[in-house]
């Protein structure tokens, strides 16, 4: 660091003396370094377009996700039914239900804003694939969000498995909606 410890007083204002020392080299390095970085950044992202901008990175990720979703194995009634016997899957389903679904359907599935899921009455059918469709794609126009994108395939299936364990429990709650199904 080039300093002049006894730099002459350059000016005096109201008793405040002003020296004129050199700028520290490390400070100049930061100053010019950040300017060079700025130029380089602009060159790479905007002049030469060597690297993708955030939006482009996202689009590539989204495309890969969509591709993976298309290739996911189809959920059939029997595939979903088999999951009910898996205690780990049921536990995961219960956990997801209590954090996500319970806000509308109640902690026990007794219904709040959303219908009672334990009373044997159903608006959109009660077959495993029908439950799966409701959770995954939702009935957006009726207020049921599509949870597939947020939860992903595994958790959606787990919730469906859990739903099949609580249906018919007849927890007292919201009045029945839809038709009674076995």
């Amino acid at each position: 660091m080039k300093t002049e410890p006894n730099s002459p007083v350059h000016h005096v204002y109201d008793g405040i003396e002003e020296q004129d020392n050199y700028l520290p080299n490390w400070w100049l390095t930061i100053l010019f370094g950040s300017i060079v970085f700025a130029a380089g950044y602009w060159f790479v992202y905007h002049s030469a377009k060597l690297l993708p901008l955030p939006g482009q990175v996202y689009e590539a990720e989204a495309a890969a996700w969509a591709e993976a979703q298309r290739n996911a194995p189809v959920a059939t009634d029997s595939v979903l039914l088999a999951l009910v016997d898996d205690t780990e899957v049921r536990a995961e389903g219960k956990q997801v239900f209590s954090t996500v679904c319970a806000t509308c359907h109640g902690q026990k599935g007794e219904g709040l804003v959303g219908p009672n899921l334990t009373d044997g009455y159903w608006l959109h059918g009660n077959k495993p694939t029908e439950l799966y469709r409701g959770v995954s794609s939702g009935y957006v126009d009726k207020g049921m969000p599509s949870w597939g994108p947020a939860l992903g395939e595994k958790k959606v299936r787990a919730v469906v498995a859990y739903l099949m364990t609580i249906r018919g429990q007849n927890v007292a709650g919201k009045a029945p909606q839809g038709e009674q199904l076995p």
Binding site: S7, E17, Q19, Y22
Partner: peptide, 24 residues
Amino acid sequence: YYFLPKAAGRPVYSYRLSIVHFWA
């Protein structure tokens, strides 16, 4: 820039640094 040198009773370090950092 006014009160610190007043309170410390010391000269301000660098006039040229003032110029560079003010305009920048």
